[in-house]
Design a protein around this nucleic acid. Structure first.
Lengths: 177, 177
DNA sequence: CAGAATCCGCCTCGATACTG
DNA sequence: CAGTATCGAGGCGGATTCTG
């Protein structure tokens, strides 16, 4: 779960880049060539190697976690308090023990959930969101909310795109607008 | 790119669920059992099947896109205006033509970027963010910003977690990776 | 230059069986 | 109940080659 392919190497500078970009944009400035149309950058990610070491993995792991199949779902179900393993499994209904274990393990590893073991004969383990986990949930909800709000537009764009493909437009046609 | 594994089936109700949850939480209410500790839900996702049909794919596709390897990076590089294919490839520096094509195709399909072809002998294709794409970028940046801001805490939690595993703790046999 | 097509290694995920 | 271990299928992503 922590080694999502070789995802890291290129996302590295993203942290710096997007933060600066966002800041610049909101201030009306563009620190990168705004209107050029020719070859610009000398090499790939030249000055960003430094940020790759630390910032990369963090941004990456978060994005990977949000994007993976079950993490967000688990986080959502933990919104209203701690839950037992089997409880989560039953609520989600479709996740295998293996994936639930791996997902929870990953979330625990990143400090997003806590794992509390009650050593009784029928084992009991409770999971609960940490502060960190709750703050992540906020952003995740926002993102999902965006998806929900723009679902129609995306669906429409998708239909139109798929429709164009079949009509013989050999992909060399202007993508309209 | 549009068929990310079988990711869809379970995320469906998430849209409704998390939105309602969030709303309820901010209002101090909990429409779901708050403090119980026993088996609660009768079955898995009983009343949510309806939402799976439409809401699911949208929320899912967005989360999958944010989580995948290159989409966000491409979106970030398109922040400051349209870019040519080779321009993006050079800037990202590490992505293969195949993945850049697939990524852009996926973004285009969802209406997040526009593809403009200039039919000249050396082909020229420009990509640009749409309004929709820009709004997604906002949330993506926020999420990445969160990752950046909490990188230290995550890294620490991760170290601690990995450290405990080796010291023969209660964990029945940490897979340790 | 911008892609399409192909081959292939790796990872992710699900199902199953076993343990404490 | 709460995992762990193993197996297998399928998808993702990289490298390479070929086209207009």
């Amino acid at each position: 779960m922590e080694q999502v392919h070789g995802r890291c190497p290129r996302y590295g500078f993203l942290t710096e880049y997007l933060l600066v970009t966002l800041r610049e944009r909101t201030q009306g400035g563009t620190f990168l060539k705004p209107g050029h149309t020719d070859v610009p950058a000398a090499g790939p990610l030249e000055g960003y190697d430094g940020a790759e070491s630390e910032g990369c993995r963090m941004v990456n792991s978060v994005l990977a976690r949000v994007g993976d199949k079950w993490s967000l779902l688990v986080v959502m179900f933990l919104s209203d308090g701690s839950k037992r393993f089997s409880e989560l499994k039953r609520m989600i209904g479709g996740i295998s023990q293996r994936m639930l274990t791996l997902t929870l393990r990953g979330l625990e590893r990143d400090g997003l959930v806590t794992r509390t073991v009650t050593p009784i004969i029928p084992p009991r383990v409770d999971y609960e969101l940490t502060e960190l986990g709750r703050s992540l949930q906020g952003h995740a909800v926002a993102l999902a909310g965006w998806a929900h709000a723009n679902g129609d537009r995306i669906a429409e764009a998708r239909r139109r795109f798929d429709g164009e493909g079949e009509s013989g437009e050999v992909r060399h046609a202007v993508a309209a607008e």
